[in-house]
Amino acid sequence: MPPVWLHSEISADEPTDAKTGAMQVAYFIDLFSPETYEAFARSSRDISGFRRRHENVAQKIKPGDVFVCYLTKLSRWFGLLEVVEGPFIDDKPIFLPENDPFIVRFRVRPTVWLDIDKGIPIHDRSVWERLSFTRDLKEGGIAWTGKVRSSLVQLGEQDGAFLAELLTAQAIEGKSYPIDEQDRRNLATHTVNRPDKVVAVSVPEDTTAIEPTERIPETEARESIRMQAQVANIGAKMGMKIWIPRADRGGVLREWANEEGALLDRLPLNYDETTLRTIEQIDVLWLKGRSIVRAFEVEHTTSVYSGILRMADLVALQPNMNIKLHIVAPETRRDKVFQEIRRPVFSLLEKGPLAEYCTYLSYANLHKLAEQEHLSHMSDTVLDAYEEEAE
């Protein structure tokens, strides 16, 4: 389709510098995986694209604003892209040969673009001690990572200006930050050839899954039940009907009052027995009428594998079922969730690679969503702002 412009004018009430009257520059994070870094580097570098779920925030960005480029897996800052115009919607493949998901686009002008070994690690002291979201934290923690988990997160004015100055100087000085063995492992790309496209996959180093007979510690089991209850409560407040596996109901109902009377006694679905048995074991389902809207698996165990496998079983049995799938897990297991979702075996599902329609919800983001005052007036699409995709 031809490009569809979302806006093309600067509003008269855009913020300006009080002294000079010049339009203030806003800085936004532009996340790149190693794969999209290489794809952008091979392109003309004049278009930066984002997923459809970024459409609303994209409309706040104006010409003159700056995308500060961050490389995931290596945690490095490496570029500055000045916005020339946009956003607009265009589904013509640019970054990927087929099924390019980055359709919310801007025309940009690269002012800094560094090779990977010249990118500045966020853990370098010159960076860590200056950024507002890292300087007060001990290294080794993960609290800071929330800032760099999604594109188009706006940086504070001081953080943005600091990074712009730092990267501009690095483009001149060219200091090297060598790639170590761990970095090389993070950069290693495995692919699987599907009939329709080539898919990037991950091969987890620890392939041990918890056996069905292995006992989960009681404290972990309780936390898992609490998260099931929270997911159920959020859905019920949005007007959804809720399904909880029968074996979990006693524990969940001790945490969730079910004041809306949303809990279903049976599923109003018409599938074969094998499919129904699979569906009935999923930790939480949100339903509207006779349709499942979203499915959630809470993965509190180290392996984070059993729930993902159940999701894969479901889409293997019913590839035409249009359900949004979510893995709910602590932030400490985020990377493990993404590794498992991107296993080679899950890339060959008839519906398409599991990573394209199964997302991650952290406990922290779920708590934030639960704290929203007007859940009863929201639709399930609000989850788009809280979920994370396996890039």
Rank of each mutant, 00 (worst) to 15 (best):
H7R: 08
P15K: 01
T16N: 03
A18C: 11
K19R: 12
I29R: 00
I29Y: 00
T36N: 00
R42N: 12
D46N: 14
I47K: 03
G49V: 03
R53K: 15
E55I: 12
N56I: 09
V57P: 00
A58H: 00
I61K: 01
F67L: 00
C69G: 02
R76E: 02
R76Y: 00
E85T: 10
E85D: 15
P93H: 04
P97Y: 04
E98D: 14
I103P: 00
R107V: 05
R107G: 01
K118M: 14
H123C: 10
D124P: 05
R135S: 10
L137N: 11
G141K: 02
A143P: 00
S150Y: 09
L163I: 06
E165Q: 15
A169Q: 12
Q170F: 12
I172W: 10
I172N: 11
E173V: 12
S176E: 15
P178I: 06
E181N: 11
D183I: 11
R184D: 05
L187K: 05
A188K: 12
T189D: 11
V192F: 09
N193Y: 12
R194E: 10
R194V: 08
K197V: 09
V198G: 09
A200C: 10
A200G: 08
A200M: 13
D206L: 12
D206R: 07
I216Q: 15
E218A: 14
T219Y: 14
R222L: 09
R222H: 11
I225L: 11
R226G: 07
A232G: 01
G239W: 02
M240Y: 06
W243P: 02
E260G: 11
E260K: 11
D265Y: 13
R266W: 13
L269G: 02
D272Y: 04
T274S: 15
T275L: 08
T275N: 08
R277I: 13
I282P: 04
V284S: 01
L287Q: 04
G289A: 03
R290Y: 11
I292Q: 04
V298A: 01
H300K: 14
T301I: 06
Y305P: 00
Y305A: 06
I308D: 05
L309M: 10
L314E: 00
H326E: 07
I327D: 05
T332Q: 15
R333G: 01
R334S: 11
F338L: 07
R343L: 10
P344V: 06
S347G: 04
L349D: 12
E350R: 15
Y357M: 05
T359S: 13
Y360I: 08
Y360M: 04
K368D: 15
A370M: 07
Q372H: 09
M378V: 04
D380S: 14
V382Q: 02
A385T: 07
E387R: 00
